[in-house]
């Protein structure tokens, strides 16, 4: 096991930031902690990177205990905190050089590891980090976290505040890093990114709701979900909520995700009901369960 977390709890001034959390990450795995702001993701990251000590529970990273062997961990992990922790007044190259020297290495020693990412920002190597776009900052921060060839990489919300193109490129990079044998623990509030992980833990209010592969996790959802649309979204939601057999009604992009309390639900019935409520352009079709649906069901 590359990361092993057992019954970790952490309280800040009465707030239970992390509550009895356990999970394991295998070597070479890309593991995602998925949850909204304030779910406890950052606290877990800080405990695992030896920046905080848990009130209860134990954890090991790369075989080292996070409290007793914190020095060894600091030699073997790469960490990219939520805010891209770069020196804004240093250039791209100077930042990278600095992080290389403090880890006792050089840019060239592990160049093959960062090459793919670095070539994208190399044209701007003399630009100050503060003047880079969000996507480029993110790439530079990743290079800095990788420069000493860590065994385990911790990425805390690496895609927050980054445009969709950079986000996509970033996840492609993570996949390739994973193939080089690096274990990656990543956190994100975006459910759509969950699908790109090998396994995920859904987390809310400091508690883990479920751990599984993205493909399996949606199977925990007990019901069939229907996409429903009509001309007036607001009235559609109102009508569905007053339908006596409704189990859940959530707006979901251009549709409403609807589930029924009954197992033998017939969409036709709902069609008639909505027509009776004067809805126009009604469309009802069964849809695939998403991780977001599962998350909502688990936090309900």
């Amino acid at each position: 096991m590359s990361i092993s977390v057992q019954n970790i709890s952490k309280t800040f001034k009465k707030v239970n930031a992390v509550n009895d959390v356990s999970f394991e990450v295998k070597e070479g795995e890309l593991f995602g902690l998925i949850g909204p702001d304030g779910a406890g993701k950052t606290t877990i990251f800080r405990i695992l990177t030896t920046l905080l000590i848990a009130d209860k529970g134990t954890a090991t990273v790369a075989g080292f205990d996070v409290v007793a062997d914190y020095k060894s961990i600091r030699n073997h992990v790469g960490y990219m905190p939520g805010k891209f922790s770069l020196y804004q007044d240093l250039t791209v190259e100077e930042n990278l050089e600095f992080f290389a020297t403090i880890f006792g290495t050089t840019i060239y020693e592990n160049y093959d590891l960062i090459k793919e990412i670095y070539v994208q920002i190399e044209p701007f190597k003399n630009r100050r980090a503060g003047k880079l776009s969000g996507g480029m900052k993110q790439k530079l921060a990743l290079c800095c976290a990788l420069i000493h060839k860590p065994k385990v990489l911790f990425l805390d919300e690496p895609t927050t505040g980054v445009d969709p193109v950079s986000r996509k490129e970033f996840w492609e990079m993570l996949k390739r890093l994973q193939q080089k044998g690096i274990t990656i623990l990543v956190s994100t509030p975006y459910m759509d990114e969950a699908e790109l992980c090998d396994r995920i833990a859904l987390i809310q209010h400091g508690k883990i709701l479920q751990i599984d592969t993205p493909q399996e996790i949606v199977k925990y959802y007990p019901k069939n979900i229907y996409d429903i649309s009509a001309d007036n979204m607001y009235k559609l939601i109102e009508s569905l909520k007053s339908f006596k057999h409704h189990y859940s009604v959530y707006p979901f992009g251009e549709f409403v995700h609807y589930t029924d309390t009954r197992n033998d639900f017939n969409p036709q019935e709902l069609q008639y009901y909505l027509e009776s409520k004067n809805h126009t352009n009604i469309k009802i079709k069964i849809t695939k369960t998403t991780i977001e649906d599962t998350f909502m069901e688990l936090t309900k």
């Binding site: 600091r74 905190p81 805010k83 403090i102 880890f103």
Partner: peptide, 13 residues
Amino acid sequence: ELGTMEVLLVSPL
């Protein structure tokens, strides 16, 4: 404030 201290702490320094 910038969060770079976090990275320095999680380094062999």
